[in-house]
Design a protein around this nucleic acid. Structure first.
Lengths: 204, 204
DNA sequence: CTTTGACTAAAATATTAAAAAAGTCAGAAA
DNA sequence: TTTCTGACTTTTTTAATATTTTAGTCAAAG
């Protein structure tokens, strides 16, 4: 079983390499198999279909993301700094795995039930993480609000909204360059500063 | 000239009716001509091509939007209430003219130079309007910041970002229903409250 | 339990023909 | 002279089809 799981992981990592370089839509199961020097049926032994492999890839990337978020999370820091830190991590993953954007992959991938379920689960995990940040800041007396889960959702959607605005400014199917991401990051940080101040307990 | 301009306006209004009902892509110059009981060359007498007509339509809709914004704008109100008011107007236009979304129209419309120029000009006008709101609030001593133009841009992009998030949740090519828009409006208002509080001068 | 070569079925892509729409022009009507 | 039109040409979309690519299967071997 250990060995089997190891092979599974290897396949996922091979797939990530292809996906994040060429995109999901331009990567075939044959490509992945050839990269790993195995046959296609071997892939299908570990994953019933391509969608399952994509789900596995997304799962892995998000796990790495959450792990890094938690690793770098310092509860003793100010909310503002914690948010700055998370923005940096968020955007580094955004850039690194930009090609993974699911919408550009298989056309009806959002109609897939397992995919939708997994994605909402991952999104919820992120919301929970941000809610915890805000709740601990409240416990520390930094900020105050009746419904921190609501605040976390609003904050996260605002961040993602700013991200989308920046993507839209880029022409379609164009990779975001360092400069664009920096500008985006700055906007997200500016918003975070105003946001935390807007929730703050103390006079400024 | 007055008469000519009047005819021009009639054409634009006819086009708006078609566009906002069926979308730009599904509306032909013949449709518009037939609606107005004129021949197609008549349309081309007033507009050199379809893109120019689209620009005219967009210009008209934005002008109506700005006019209503300015009409309903009460400088004596609190920033928060002013922003609430503008959000309501913004989203009413968003719903009414949702079908106009340019991206769904002609495929390479964003490559058109006149279109890009017009759109950035209109976006800038909106930014200026919001900047003025924030600046007057600063003059009244409600809020404070070194660069209100920057703040206005950040605020506007955050609002638009939230709008996009709500559109994305809807399945592709699905009209936003009242419920969705209400939820979106609430989020925008919540953000506005936190945002203004984050810029506020006084203790809360 | 894993892996594979050789296969089938489904989907994406390229090709072409037909239809629809954009855009033009000489000349008529106001 | 300004505004408008019927009849036209050119360009773009759409529809139909053939071709290739890719997802997914299976019997059998290591």
């Amino acid at each position: 079983m250990i060995v089997a799981d190891k092979k599974r992981e290897q396949i996922i990592e091979g797939a990530i390499k292809r996906f994040s370089h060429f995109g999901i839509g331009k990567t075939t199961m044959n490509d992945i198999a050839e990269d790993l020097s195995v046959s296609k049926p071997s892939l299908y032994y570990y994953f019933p279909d391509k969608k399952s492999l994509i789900v596995g890839v997304i799962e892995k990337v998000f796990t790495d993301y959450f792990d890094l978020l938690k690793k770098k999370y310092n509860p003793d820091d100010t909310v503002e700094n914690i948010l700055f830190q998370t923005i940096e991590i968020r955007n580094s993953f955004f850039m690194k795995y930009f090609m993974l954007r699911i919408s550009e992959g298989l056309p009806d991938i959002f109609n897939d039930d397992a995919m939708k379920k997994k994605l909402t689960a991952l999104k919820d995990s992120e919301k929970v993480f941000y809610a915890e940040i805000f709740e601990r800041a409240q416990e520390k007396g930094e900020i105050k609000h009746e419904n921190m889960a609501h605040i976390a959702e609003l904050y996260l959607e605002s961040l993602m909204g700013l991200t989308n605005m920046c993507i839209m400014e880029l022409g379609k199917d164009l990779l975001p360059d360092k400069k664009t991401v920096n500008r985006m990051t700055q906007k997200q940080k500016d918003l975070s500063s105003i946001f935390t101040r807007g929730l703050s307990v103390n006079k400024h």
